[in-house]
Amino acid sequence: MADHDPKDETRERIPAMQSLLENPFLLLFIGVAMPTVFYIIWGIMEVVTIPLAQ
């Protein structure tokens, strides 16, 4: 623990990935956007583009 003195830590910047994981609303956004784009929107496009029967 010697190299992890809490007083030193307070000065160190929080890494980007940790900041991401500490931002609930950003996570909420990407957690909703991912499946909306890849599952729902892409899926709806699949259904819409099914051709008409002859």
């Binding site: 990935m17 990407i30 991912m34 599952y39």
Partner: peptide, 16 residues
């Protein structure tokens, strides 16, 4: 926590 992040990103796709 990274494993939970993978859930946030990808778990819901499995509706397929």
């Amino acid at each position: 926590r990274f494993a939970f992040l993978l859930y946030i990103l990808f778990l819901q796709l499995a509706s397929a």
